[in-house]
Design a protein around this nucleic acid. Structure first.
Length: 201
DNA sequence: TATATAAACATGTTACATCA
DNA sequence: GTGATGTAACATGTTTATAT
C-alpha cells in the first residue's frame, strides 16, 4: 500500500469515526473511545504526518480571523484542505494553546520590565531619603547653632519647640544658605527641590 | 427547574519527525 | 546515533448547550 492509498484509507476511516461523533440530524450516539480509534488507525497503517506549508498557512490565516472554530467552519476548512475535521479541530486547539502561551510570555516580560523599573525607582528613592535625612540633620544643627547664637544661651533652656524659633515675622533669609529659603515651619525648598521635616510632622 | 448527556474546550502529556 | 525542539494527536477534566 503506497502513501497515497494509506492517506485515503485513513481519511475514510476518520470520516467514519467523525460521523460517529457528530451524527446528522441531531441524533446522538455514544462517542467511541480514542484508544479504540488509535488502534484502528494503527491497523490501517497510519503514521503521523506534518501538515503542508500551504495547509498551515491557510489555517493560520483562518486562526488570525477567529480563534474559535464553529462546527460549520471546521467542516468547510477540512474539506478545503483535504483534512479530517478532527485534524482541523486539533490544530486549532494546539494553536490556541501556543497563542496563549505566547501571550503569557509577553505579559510576563512586560510585568518584569515594570517590576524592574519600580525596583530601580525604589532604590533611587531610598538613596534620596538617606541624602535628605543627612541634609535635615545638618540643617537642624545649623538652626540650633543660630538659635543659640541669637538667644545667647542653649536652646534647651528657653524652649523645647524648634518651630518657635521660626514663628517670628521675618525668617532668617540668607542665614540658611544661599539656596534655602523659608516656606513653612516644616517644609523647605532647596534648589527647587522640596523636602519635608519628617521629625516634626 | 433539575438532571443527564454530548460537544467543545483547556490543559497537560505522548509520540513522532526533523535538525544540528 | 543522539539530544533538543516543534507539533500532531491524544487523555482527561471542565464548561456549555440541549433534550428530557
Amino acid at each position: 500500500m503506497n502513501q497515497e492509498e494509506q492517506m485515503l484509507l485513513f481519511s475514510e476511516l476518520c470520516s467514519e469515526l467523525y460521523h460517529h461523533q457528530v451524527p446528522e440530524g441531531g441524533e446522538r450516539r455514544p462517542r467511541r473511545r480514542r484508544k479504540e480509534e488509535k488502534e484502528e488507525k494503527e491497523l490501517a497503517g497510519f503514521k503521523k504526518r506534518k501538515l503542508t506549508a500551504e495547509q498551515v498557512n491557510f489555517l493560520e490565516k483562518n486562526f488570525g480571523n477567529e480563534h474559535k472554530l464553529e462546527s460549520s467552519r471546521k467542516v468547510r476548512l477540512a474539506s478545503e484542505l483535504g483534512l479530517d475535521p478532527r485534524q482541523v479541530a486539533v490544530w486549532f486547539q494546539n494553536r490556541r494553546a501556543r497563542w496563549k502561551s505566547k501571550q503569557l510570555e509577553e505579559e510576563y516580560k512586560r510585568l518584569k520590565t515594570m517590576h524592574d523599573a519600580v525596583v530601580m525607582e525604589k532604590c533611587h528613592l531610598e538613596a534620596e531619603v538617606l541624602r535628605l535625612r543627612d541634609q535635615l540633620s545638618d540643617a537642624e544643627k545649623e538652626v540650633k547653632k543660630l538659635s543659640e547664637r541669637r538667644n545667647g544661651s542653649p536652646e534647651g533652656e528657653r524652649s523645647c519647640s524648634p518651630s518657635s524659633s521660626f514663628s517670628m515675622d521675618t525668617p532668617f533669609l540668607g542665614e540658611f544658605g544661599e539656596d534655602l529659603f523659608y516656606v513653612h515651619e516644616n517644609i523647605y525648598i532647596n534648589n527647587g527641590m522640596e523636602w519635608v521635616n519628617y521629625y516634626d510632622i
